[in-house]
Design a binder for these strands. Structure first.
Lengths: 210, 210
DNA sequence: TGCGATTGCTACAGGTGTGTAGGTTGGCCT
DNA sequence: AGGCCAACCTACACACCTGTAGCAATCGCA
């Protein structure tokens, strides 16, 4: 009497909580990259993972905590790639600042190109995000900017360069990095790494000599 | 029997269609500036205007057409302020390119500071916008960027400057302008117009000498 | 003063998302 | 084998948004 045909898998395959958590974060990232922050919802994440909402609520307190967890994961990966690009303060003496900047930006482009899915959420999609998430992204960017500002300040002092507005310049370098990274992601053929780096060189050279 | 107390104005004050259209655009802009694109809906606009949804649907085909109408209005105002900053092609010969750029960006900052509510929607809030709106904003930015690229190309040719990657540099100048404008809006006291312009000067020196 | 076009409203049907309460299934472990 | 708990699910009560049909108020003008 019972239906012997395996009724199209009513239950999602079982998983230990920890693994399911990771899978949900992956699902959230997938939705986010594919459809943008605006499309991210508990519902959408559950759907993407082939699971129902209560599963999500059992593992996360709600949407925002889930997104923050995702950000923890992504930002850690992102920072791990980027922080090494900052020079140790000890090296600053013998450092040609503009050469270092060019190399740093080149490496950034490599890193971004290597793992686009990690970077897209941080690079472009910050506006539509829930306020908490946006704040987090902006805070992190500000931390990086401040770091960069320190490097610039010390580097310039060490090589006796003129009085530049280091704070504002750090802002401009950040958006420059962002834009170059985005160009690189959007059209890798038209904007290969070396072209972007080369385009930047004359600007930085100008800042070198008094 | 009837309630003689004027029941808290059941009807919104009447208005000719044309004026109501404008008011609805204003309401949309207000919501957008206050709560971001994500909060914009026909419902929210109607509420902000003190009116019910059918009124909105009577005057616009729906949310997207309304937003596009708003963009028409804002972009026209924005372009009217910005286009005059581009030099006539005839002036290019006697033009010191970097001085012109500095002056242009200075004027941009003035214009933005003068009418923040016109610029905010275009400057920051593009990500959460409906796809059509985002496309429109990006297209317009690309048009401006292409214009800028032309000015740079001709200007550099006219003053015999080195072979710079004008296309990429135009991108960088655009994001630079954007960031400076945003800094200016966010904290006018910390970032007065003249400081921002001054910070930019040393970078632009690159364009001058061969 | 009263009629008619204009302007606005109420009310309904349908869609999608949020959380949660309470039942069901599957698999490990004795 | 059978019990038990973790992992999933169904179902409900809200909330907010979209469009639209049909009714009610208002204002201008004869």
């Amino acid at each position: 009497m019972a239906d012997p045909v395996p009724r199209q898998r009513r239950y999602a395959p079982r998983m230990p909580a920890a693994r399911r958590r990771e899978q949900l974060l992956d699902a959230a990232l997938a939705v986010l990259v594919r459809d943008g922050y605006g499309a991210v919802s508990v519902e959408a994440i559950a759907r993407e993972a082939g699971v129902t909402r209560p599963v999500v609520y059992a593992l996360f307190e709600g949407l925002e905590p889930l997104l923050l967890a995702l950000l923890d994961r992504s930002q850690q990966q992102a920072l791990e790639s980027v922080v090494p690009l900052l020079p140790a303060t000890t090296d600053l003496a013998g450092l040609r600042l503009d050469d270092w900047l060019l190399e740093a930006i080149g490496s950034l482009l490599d890193v971004v190109r290597a793992r686009p899915e990690v970077w897209r959420p941080v690079l472009g999609l910050t506006e539509n995000a829930p306020p908490v998430v946006r704040r987090r992204i902006e805070d992190t960017q500000e931390v990086l900017r401040a770091q960069l500002e320190q490097v610039l300040r010390r580097g310039l002092a060490a090589q006796g360069a003129p009085d530049l507005d280091v704070e504002v310049l750090a802002h401009l370098l950040m958006v420059t990095g962002e834009r170059l990274a985005r160009l690189s992601l959007a059209d890798p053929d038209a904007y290969p790494r070396d072209r972007l780096v080369a385009a930047l060189r004359p600007l930085l050279a100008a800042a070198r000599q008094a």
